[in-house]
């Protein structure tokens, strides 16, 4: 999915998100989600599994619910949780300040630690902390943002920190290019775009559901629904399972020996 860096239209993914653990060969449909063995809906305030195994962690953080009796081949993923609302131009220093970049995301214990620092760089005007002190994960699993979310550096630590903190999706008005691509590349979070500006209408703590299939965000607290933008041309890469899986499918690189 890495290819999405340069894909112009970050948008809703109508099919499954593939993780970077492509060797599990998730099918583009429900297989990914069924294989996660997660509860159908992520409990509203519970922490996701604090697994040491990065694969499990990954699945825990990108938990999505599959319709249990879905016999059709289309996936019906949705995210449910409380949201954390930020404004425009949230840059990568606010998402994960540079002093924490010594943590290497590909090391499981450091991956976990990155989560505890997610959004710790937000200015004091954000009175509610995203991750409580001494915690590794946030009670907010969905971020709602304004324009140009993730601008600034190319640090992949940014989407990784959010994913490690338990974020499943970000719904922003727009994204900075590298952040969007890194989100897709890592499979840490869904970078979704809203048709309209919703960070003015939602409040931190609102209970929301994202229905990927319908490209819809439902705010249960306010009772309002918002349309998300359809998937852009990152779609084929996402559906394949990311840049590695996409390239393997195309025969460009050999399959991983298991």
């Amino acid at each position: 999915m890495a290819a999405a860096t340069s894909f112009a239209n970050p948008a809703a993914f109508s099919s499954s998100l593939n993780h970077r653990f492509h060797h599990q060969k998730p099918s583009p449909s429900t297989a990914t989600f069924n294989s996660t063995k997660q509860p159908l809906f992520k409990p509203l305030i519970s922490q996701s599994t604090l697994a040491v195994n990065p694969t499990v962690l990954r699945h825990a953080s990108v938990v999505a619910s599959a319709t249990p009796d879905s016999s059709s081949s289309t996936s019906a993923a949705s995210f449910h949780g409380t949201c954390y609302v930020v404004r425009d131009n949230i840059d990568t220093d606010q998402i994960i300040p540079a002093e924490y970049l010594t943590l290497v995301p590909s090391k499981p214990d450091e991956y976990k630690k990155l989560g505890s620092y997610a959004l710790i760089g937000l200015p004091a005007s954000y009175e509610t902390r995203f991750v409580e002190p001494e915690q590794y994960q946030s009670k907010y699993s969905i971020i709602i943002a304004g324009d140009n979310f993730g601008c600034g550096s190319s640090r992949e630590h940014a989407p990784v920190a959010l994913g490690a903190a338990g974020v499943t999706a970000v719904v922003a008005e727009s994204y900075a290019r590298i952040f969007f691509r890194n989100s897709v590349a890592t499979g840490e979070i869904y970078p979704l775009e809203s048709e309209v500006r919703i960070c003015d209408e939602c409040k931190t703590g609102d209970v929301v559901t994202i229905e990927l299939e319908q490209s819809l965000l439902i705010n249960h607290t306010t009772g309002k629904n918002y349309v998300l933008k359809p998937i852009g041309d990152a779609g084929p890469v996402i559906e394949a399972g990311g840049i590695f899986a996409y390239a393997r499918k195309a025969g460009m690189i050999p399959a991983l020996a298991e």
Binding site: S154, I243, F244
Partner: peptide
Amino acid sequence: GIGNTDAGFVLG
């Protein structure tokens, strides 16, 4: 600029 995952791909 690119991320770690893309760079890992390019390395290979």
